[in-house]
Amino acid sequence: MGKDIRKRKGVGTLLDKAFFEQIAQNKAQTMYRVACGLLRHDADRQDAMQNALLKAWEKRHTLRDERLFTTWLIRILINECRNIARAGQRVIPMETLPETPAPAYDMTARDLVDRLPEKQRLCVILHYLEGWPVKEVAQALKVPQATVRGRLMQARKALKLELTKEEAAYET
């Protein structure tokens, strides 16, 4: 039943506050990328990430297999992002919002990914950007693996197609 990645000492022993602090430190990147894929504003992303962490903390005793923690956390985060997107939510003033300058990253590629349908975008972020195996993406998105593979295939095609259009437009 279990997949032997790491052994645990007993129910709940690993999911303590120190573990959550470690997760907040180590998984912030993954969480941020997923939130970027679903929400436009850093304020909302921050809110979603914090909500997800709080909810995971609250429900941590219900998770029997801690090896699945990250997948589970991302599932919660996706739901939080969707709630925020639905409700036009803004942040609670728990922290000062980050005032980071826009980084000089490849916004063309980003634009292309952002144009993908949400379902494909999430698969691309988790699989290609975060390097998650299809199985874990499927678990996080609650869809069969075949569906993830289908979405990735469509996304690959779409990204290539978009790029061709951009190049064509640039050339003209």
Binding site: Y32, G37, Q50, T96, P98, P103, A109, R110, I125
Partner: peptide
């Protein structure tokens, strides 16, 4: 593709 998304802002990581 991997360059398409920026790293998490330090302030946001700290807040988490």
């Amino acid at each position: 593709l991997q360059q398409a998304y920026p790293p998490v802002p330090a302030a946001l990581r700290d807040s988490l």
